[in-house]
Design a protein around this nucleic acid. Sequence first.
DNA 1: GAAAGCACCTGACGGC
DNA 2: TGCCGTCAGGTGCTTT
Length: 334
Amino acid sequence: MPELPEVEVVRRGLASWVRGRTITGVDILDARSVRRHAAGPEDLRGNLEGATVTDVARRGKFLWLPLVEASAGSSGAPASTGAPEADDGVPRLALMAHLGMSGQLLMEDSHLPDEKHLKVRLTLSPAVSADGTPMPSELRFVDQRIFGGVFLTDLLPTPDGAPGGLSESGLPLIPEEAAHIARDPLDPAFSFDDFYTRLRRRRTGIKRALLDQGLISGVGNIYADEALWAAKLHFARPTDTMRRADALRLIESARDVMTRALAAGGTSFDSLYVNVNGASGYFSRSLNAYGREGEPCPRCAAAGLSTLIRRDSFMNRSSYSCPVCQPRPRNGRW
DNA sequence: GAAAGCACCTGACGGC
DNA sequence: TGCCGTCAGGTGCTTT
């Protein structure tokens, strides 16, 4: 299941394949995967055909391809988003993608058979690699559970003038649909002070806050559990009791676990997450708490204790923690 | 306005 | 063998 490291692996993989290429064909095989494009599949197709991809950017788990449209009037396609037409090479539109639970963005040659859950296919203009070999001609969006999708959105200037997301170009542009998403711990523009100030204003538990993409992005259930385990914090710890040192330790833990996951190519439990070349990551082997119910807590084991990781139901999903390292409060005091 | 609950969705898996 | 229920979980919408 893709979280921030997995999406970043995909972004880096895609960047080398699609920058500067023009979309020459669009096949929408399942309208449910483009349901967030309010104007419908035909409008999406009309706007994409002839557009050129300038970059691949990401904020949190949202990924987008900034687009320079074909010259005004050449395609006859309506500009459904209302973005001003311009011919200055600056992208005004972006193709947004969210992988949801099971989405994949794959670069493949056209002769390869369609995947069982292929939803959208973009055919790209021919290009060759630095070594002269032809690049794959298709960008495919594959999604088994259909929690993800692709849609078109306007690009807006960022309020602070900082890059809208991680990308090679670093343009200060952000898709309208991602403007509410906070920056993630790996983003150079992430502000711990801002995060901590907003965290203290919340009246909820720390894990629920970690999963709120408007407060901090990129953290999903897996890395929330791993970061909380590393920081020795219980998932239900009230946010307004979080000391600055607690919050700092938590953010550094999240940053550390996601950096290591990124280096390992992401976390894969099954075939639902793969990179743009279809390969799985290896970080699941390095998880300390998530998915390890009934197994010894590594930290307790190192101290000679035989504590077992427990699983609790939380927010209609599972939460894994160590009852000794991450204790519940005593007498209501944290 | 903020927090919490729920629907969406498909495949794997266990129990009968 | 086949059916049914449960589980997995990110996001947006609805309810409180």
